[in-house]
Amino acid sequence: MYTLQIEHGVKDFEMWKGAYGADPLGRADSGVLAERIYRPVDDEHYVVLDLDFASREEAAEFLDRLRSNVWSTPAASPALASGPKTRIVEQVSGARLQ
C-alpha cells in the first residue's frame, strides 16, 4: 500500500472541503482506495490528507495531476493559503492493538 500524504494551509476549511468534495480529478477513478482528512487541533487553517493507492505509480500520477491541474491555478484552488507539502510513503507494517 502506498499513501500520498498532503498538507497545506487553507484560508477557509469549509471552502476547501467544498472544493475537495467536488472531486475535480475523480479520486476513485484515479486509484484512490481510501482517504483520511485531518486538521490539527490547534490550527483550523491547516489540512493534512492521506490518500491510499495500490501502487506507487498511481500515487505519483495523481500527485502530478494535482500539481498541473489543481494547484497551479488559483481559480482551481481558491481555498489554499500555502503551497502543499507532499510525499509518497509505503506501508511496511501495521497492526491493530485492540
Rank of each mutant, 00 (worst) to 15 (best):
Q91T: 12
V89K: 07
R67S: 00
Q98H: 12
I37S: 03
R67W: 04
N69S: 14
L4Q: 14
Q98L: 11
V47I: 06
I6C: 11
E58N: 13
R96M: 08
E7D: 15
A19S: 06
Y46M: 06
L49E: 05
D52H: 04
L33I: 07
E58G: 09
S55T: 10
A95M: 12
R65I: 15
P24W: 01
S30E: 01
P40L: 00
A79M: 15
G21W: 09
T3I: 14
P78W: 15
D50M: 04
V47H: 02
T86F: 14
E57I: 01
T73P: 03
G26I: 06
A75C: 12
D42L: 04
I6F: 09
D29I: 00
Y20W: 07
D64F: 05
R39H: 01
E7Y: 14
V47T: 05
S93W: 14
V10L: 11
A95F: 09
F13D: 07
F62K: 06
K85L: 10
N69E: 14
K17M: 03
Q5A: 10
V70R: 08
S68A: 06
L80D: 13
S77V: 04
E57N: 08
G94Y: 10
L66T: 03
L33S: 05
E57A: 07
L66R: 08
T73Q: 10
G26Y: 03
E44A: 05
L49P: 00
Q5H: 12
A34F: 00
I6G: 12
R96I: 13
H8L: 10
A34L: 03
A34P: 02
G31T: 02
L49F: 03
K17N: 05
A75V: 07
